[in-house]
Design a protein around this nucleic acid. Structure first.
Length: 204
DNA sequence: TGTCCGATTGGT
DNA sequence: CCAATCGGACAG
């Protein structure tokens, strides 16, 4: 399927990360590469708020070589490498200099599914989980600091033929049990009932 | 320079 | 439940 995507403008990202995260749901992440275009609806994400959030790489306003991109202008990509083998992709929110970001955790594929399967080596699930999203979409460290408002990797409004009603649910974020009180903040957002949303219960 | 560990995933 | 796998953060 070939869609006419219209790119989200910079001002869309210029707000508090916890407000931006739910607003990104049902929008489209697009990546155009020489191998082809891949795209998917954002169905799950998480907000990370540097100054006040123990789970955030920029907690307390900390700046390191790795997290520097979080301090960039709204609409910047923050990509980091973790566990010695995985990439995670974030969208920088808020004003430049304020380290807010939204981690993209799951997509519903809508274009380039064959290419995604190729990149994923036909493993399933295809685009559920932040590292799987990066692999399927061809996102790696070369995209760290990239401008989503002017490059091959960007967010677009959903094409009209894909518009559907949806409900937003929240939960604590995944994999941040080390973060003290922040582990309980309800800053994970997802489209209720969408089959591409990850399920990972926390016993507690 | 040395140690510790992770915003995960995939296989047991 | 646990191993894989290694760059980054931080202490010394």
């Amino acid at each position: 399927m070939k869609y006419a995507f219209s790119r989200v403008p910079r001002n869309f990202y210029r707000r508090h990360g916890v407000l931006l995260a739910p607003q990104l749901l049902s929008l489209v992440l697009v990546h155009q590469t020489p191998e082809g275009t891949t795209a998917g609806l954002i169905v799950e994400d998480e907000a990370y708020i540097g100054p006040e959030d123990r789970a955030c790489h920029a907690f307390g306003g900390k700046i390191t070589p790795r997290n520097r991109a979080m301090y960039g202008p709204p609409g910047t990509a923050y990509v980091y490498f973790t566990y010695g083998m995985h990439y995670c992709f974030n969208i920088v929110a808020a004003e430049e200099g304020v380290p807010h970001a939204v981690l993209i955790r799951a997509l519903e594929p809508i274009e380039g599914i064959e290419l995604m399967n190729l990149r994923r080596n036909n493993r399933l699930p295809l685009t559920t989980g932040p590292a799987r999203v990066c692999q399927a979409m061809g996102i790696d460290l070369s995209h760290n600091g990239a401008d989503l408002v002017g490059g091959d990797l960007y967010v677009a409004f959903p094409p009209p033929e894909l518009a559907r009603p949806f409900k937003v649910s929240t939960s604590p974020r995944i994999g941040v049990d080390y973060a003290g009180d922040a582990r309980n903040y309800p800053w994970r957002f997802f489209i209720e009932g969408n089959p591409y949303v990850s399920r990972r219960p926390r016993s507690d």
